[in-house]
Simulated assay, not measured.
Amino acid sequence: MSSSTETHSDLARTAEALRNEFQRRMNTLRRQLDDDFKQATAASEQRVVDLAERLDQGEARVAGIVDAYDEMRRQTDGELRGARQAIARLTGEIHLIEGRLRLEHGVQPVDLDAVATELTKLVAQVRAVEQIRAGMLDERGRGKCEAVLTAYAELKRLGAQSRNRALDASGELARAKAGSRAFRTAAAAYRLHWGQFRSRERDLDREAPGYADADSALRRDAELREAFASQRGADAITDLTAHLRRKVDIAVETHALFPAWFTITELGHRPSATRSAQWRDVATQVVLYRITFRVTHAVLALGDPPAGRYQSERYTAIRAALRELDG
C-alpha cells in the first residue's frame, strides 16, 4: 500500500516537473516570437520609410525635369513667336518699301472696291438679299419665339382641360343628391378645376402680348426666308464671292499693289506661303463685306463698327478671321 502511494507521488512530481518545463519553454518561445515580430515590424516600417523617401526624391527629380522642360518649351515658344513676328515685320517692311518704290514709278494700287459693269446687277442683288437676311431671325431668336408659342399653346391646353373637368364636375353636381358624399366630392372638384381654369385664363391674358409678338416675328421671318430663297440669295452671294476671289487672285498673280486699308490689316501685302488658302478666303470676305455694306473708309478695312445685329455679326466674324491670320 505504501509502495503504491509513493509511486503515485513520484508520478505526480514528474508530471508537475514536465508541466513546469513545458511552460518555461513555451514562455521562452513566446518571448522569442514577440522579439522576432517586433524586429520584423521595425524593419518593415523602416523599409517603408526608406521607400517613401526614395519615392519622394524620385518625384522631386521628375518634377524638376518637368519644370525644366516646361521652361525650355516656354522659352522656345517665345523665341519662335518672336522670330515669326520679326520675319512678318521684315516681310511687311520689304513689301512696304517695294510698294513705295512702285508708287514712285507711277504704279497705282488695285481698286478692290470698284464694281465692274457686268457685276452691277449681281452686286445689287446681293445687297438686296443681305438686307432681307439682316431682318431674319437667327437660330437663338427663332428658338426663343418658338418657345413662347409652345408655352402659350400648353397653357391653352391646360386651361381647356381645367374647363372640361369643371363642366364634368358641374354635371355630377346636378345629378347628385344635395348633401351626399358624391355631391360633396363633385363640389370640391368643381371648385378646384374652375379655379384652375380662371387662373390659367388670367395667365393667357397676361402672356397674350408676348405670344402675339413671337407669332408675328416668326411669320415675318418665314416671309423673309421665302423671299431670300426666291431671289436666289445664297446663289447670288456665292457667285459674287467667286468673282471677288478671282479679282484677289489676279492681283496676287500680277504682283499688284493692294490699297492701304488692305495692307494695314493682318492681310499685309502678300499671302504667306503657309496660309495662302486661308489668306485668300479672308481677303475675299473683307472685300465682299466692303462692297455689300458700301464701306469706303480709306484706312479701316471694315469701316466703323456697325450697329445692326446681322452686320455686327459679320463684322465680328471677319475680325476674328483676320486675327487668326496673325496667330
Rank of each mutant, 00 (worst) to 15 (best):
M1L: 08
S2K: 06
S4E: 14
T5I: 13
T5M: 07
H8M: 12
A12K: 13
Q23T: 10
T28I: 07
Q32T: 13
D36R: 12
Q39H: 06
Q39W: 01
A40N: 07
A42T: 14
A43E: 14
E45S: 13
V48Y: 07
D50P: 01
A52K: 13
Q57E: 10
G58K: 05
R61I: 08
R61Q: 11
V62C: 04
D70K: 11
E71Y: 09
M72I: 05
E79Y: 12
G82R: 10
R84N: 09
Q85V: 08
Q85F: 09
A86L: 09
A86V: 03
A86D: 10
G92P: 00
G92M: 02
G92N: 11
E93G: 01
I94R: 12
I97P: 00
E98Q: 12
R102E: 11
G106C: 05
Q108E: 09
V110I: 07
E118K: 14
L119Y: 08
L119Q: 15
Q125I: 02
V126H: 01
Q131T: 11
Q131G: 09
D138F: 04
E139D: 15
G143Y: 00
K144E: 13
K144S: 10
C145T: 03
E146C: 03
L149H: 03
A151S: 10
Y152S: 07
A153K: 09
E154F: 01
G159I: 01
G159S: 14
G159C: 14
G159K: 12
Q161G: 08
R163G: 02
A166L: 03
D168A: 15
A169C: 06
A169L: 07
E172I: 00
A174E: 09
S180K: 08
T185N: 08
T185A: 14
A186M: 03
Q196W: 04
F197C: 08
S199R: 14
S199M: 12
E201P: 00
D205V: 01
D205L: 02
R206E: 07
P209N: 06
Y211V: 00
D215N: 09
S216N: 15
A217M: 05
R220C: 07
D221E: 06
A222V: 01
L224I: 10
L224E: 06
F228G: 06
Q231T: 08
Q231Y: 02
G233K: 04
G233Y: 03
A234R: 14
T238V: 06
D239T: 15
H243L: 02
H243W: 10
L244V: 15
R246C: 05
R246T: 13
R246H: 10
K247H: 13
T254C: 02
F258D: 02
T263N: 00
I264N: 15
T265M: 04
T265W: 04
E266N: 13
L267K: 00
G268M: 03
T274M: 11
T274V: 13
T274D: 15
V282F: 08
A283M: 04
A283G: 12
T284D: 01
Q285L: 13
V286Q: 05
V287Y: 02
V287D: 01
V287H: 04
L288N: 05
Y289G: 05
V295G: 04
A298I: 07
L300M: 11
P306T: 08
R309G: 07
R309A: 14
E313C: 04
E313A: 10
R314H: 11
A317K: 14
R319M: 05
L325M: 02
